[in-house]
Design a protein around this nucleic acid. Structure first.
Length: 457
RNA sequence: GCCCCGUUCGUCUAGCGGCCUAGGACGCUGGCUUCUCAUGCCAGUAGCACGGGUUCAAAUCCCGUACGGGGUGCCA
């Protein structure tokens, strides 16, 4: 199996899913997984982009057994093209795009109908603006049995004589792709459905190489946006690296991606990758496009976040902890954070813990009103402050003082105190972190809230 | 235009002729647990695109229609 990205952009979720399925199937079958960088588009490919793609794959935990760059192998492809030329299976062509379109227009064909085989027998000599085209058979069909789609066939008559070597001498992707799949002994080709239309070209080239038997093809359903269109790097938010920086766990990303187009037969969709590798079969991949749903990804992320052991969670989230939160404090609060986090995100962590080391944030006006503008609140705050002044400064004693005061007054006391001390109506359990603050600080915050209430009355 | 492909709850999926008055998951709604939130547990919500066949029996097989998508580059 192989994953063969073109380094003309960052790795996006569609590519990642293709890589993942190839990798899973290789590991499932005990096969070899090849990473082949298809950098034949010399204008748009770059080593930086290649490195970024490899980096994203490594992050996802996808490893490979062999690695190639097609740019290192141009001479092989050219030799192949020369053989084709010598055998009359390919020919040179000096038609420009405008010339091709002008002839189409003259015939009354719609634009985009393709090349009309004009140069097939013109015996064009090598030179500027000359490409090499493959001579597609006039008759017959080219097809294969797709594991996912069943039999797919194209009439050779509708296939155009496609270019295999550009005018600058650089081979086109079909040529390199067909050559390498044979050369590297690729037996299974698992890739996006957007590539089905190029498959007959590759098949024709393989035959020319003396390998008429197709590999096993599995064309995956596309991953689409909310408008059910193929994801585009330009308009959709799809770079794997972005999800990484937004605080998604690689194992969650990987786990979610594998549910797009495939359902684990045992119905357990969240779990360790080894389990899915064991169950993974090409035959079970479905054939309709899947929408990439960030909401569900977030759910997977929450779950995987909770699978982490306490130590591991601290280690893996440390980089996103605001710098003014001391390590030991974070260690004590981490379990509370772990249970509430959606992503490993600095803002999320800060909103949970920031109030312990800094002044509480300005409360949301609606929340403030809802919690504090109840008639009993001033009285509750008063009594809580009074009891807190003399109590031992431990979580248990704080809890007893706050809840006890409420009980004695027949009122809810936890929420107003939380609001006064943390600046929010929701958050981690109150008394443990509250005990981390100085008594004076807590009393000051209570007093500030009391004054504010008095001012509003 | 031409070629190729697809269509099960809002979303991801199970289903590969009878176990389906269509199962699970996310989301959403309600309830219980709880110092708030979150978790956990329980319940609810909502779907086989349409029309013809084949068959004793069709979400499952065949044909057509509609809708959607992909390709149609000296990109991959």
């Amino acid at each position: 199996m192989r994953f063969s990205p073109a380094p003309t952009g960052y790795l996006h979720v569609g590519g990642a899913r293709s890589a993942l399925f190839n990798w899973m199937y290789a590991r499932h079958t005990g096969g070899v997984f090849v990473l082949r960088v298809e950098d034949t588009d010399t204008d748009r490919s770059s080593p930086e982009l290649t490195e970024a793609i490899l980096d994203s794959l490594r992050w996802l935990g996808i490893d490979w057994d062999e690695e190639y760059r097609q740019s290192d192998r141009f001479d092989r492809y050219r030799r192949f093209a020369d053989d084709l030329l010598a055998a009359g299976q390919a020919y040179r062509c000096d038609c420009t795009r405008p010339a091709i379109e002008a002839r189409a227009a003259a015939r009354g064909d719609a634009p985009g109908v393709g090349y009309d085989r004009f140069c097939r027998d013109r015996d064009v000599r090598p030179g500027d603006g000359v490409v090499v085209r493959f001579r597609v058979p006039d008759h017959g069909v080219t097809g294969w049995d797709d594991v996912i789609r069943g039999r797919v066939e194209f009439d050779n008559a509708v296939l155009e004589d496609f270019i295999i070597v550009r005018s600058n001498g650089v081979p086109m992707f079909h040529l390199a792709n067909a050559y390498d799949d044979v050369d590297m002994g690729i037996t299974h080709v698992i890739r996006g459905e957007d590539l089905v239309n190029t498959t007959p070209r590759v098949l024709l080239l393989r035959s020319a190489l003396g390998h008429p038997d197709p590999p096993v093809y599995a064309h995956l359903p596309l991953i689409v946006n909310e408008k059910r269109q193929k994801l585009s790097k330009r308009r959709d938010d799809v770079a794997v690296g972005d999800y990484r920086s937004r605080g998604f766990l690689p194992e969650a990303m990987r786990n979610y991606l594998l549910t797009l187009g495939w359902g684990p037969p045992d119905g357990e969709e969240i779990g360790p990758i080894e389990h899915f590798i064991e169950l993974f079969e090409l035959e079970n991949i479905n054939n309709s496009p899947a929408f990439f749903d960030v909401k569900k990804l977030e759910h997977f992320n929450r779950e995987h976040l909770r699978f982490l052991g306490p130590e591991e969670f601290i280690e893996r989230s440390a980089h996103a902890v605001p710098s003014d939160i001391p390590e030991d404090l974070y260690g004590r609060m981490a379990a509370y954070v772990q249970e509430r986090l959606v992503r490993i995100d600095r803002d999320e962590i800060d909103s949970l813990l920031g109030w312990i080391v800094r002044a509480a944030p300005e409360p949301d006006p609606n929340d403030w009103k809802k919690v504090m503008r109840r008639p009993e609140v001033p009285e509750v705050l008063e009594l809580v402050a009074e009891r807190l002044a003399g109590v031992p400064w431990t979580p248990a004693a704080l809890e007893e003082a706050v809840l006890g005061a409420g009980a004695d007054l027949g009122a809810k006391s936890q929420l107003p105190v939380r609001m006064a001390v943390t600046g929010a109506r929701t958050g981690i359990p109150l008394f443990e972190p509250m005990a981390e603050l100085d008594r004076a600080e807590v009393l000051a915050r209570l007093s500030a809230a009391q004054h504010r209430l008095a001012g509003e009355a």
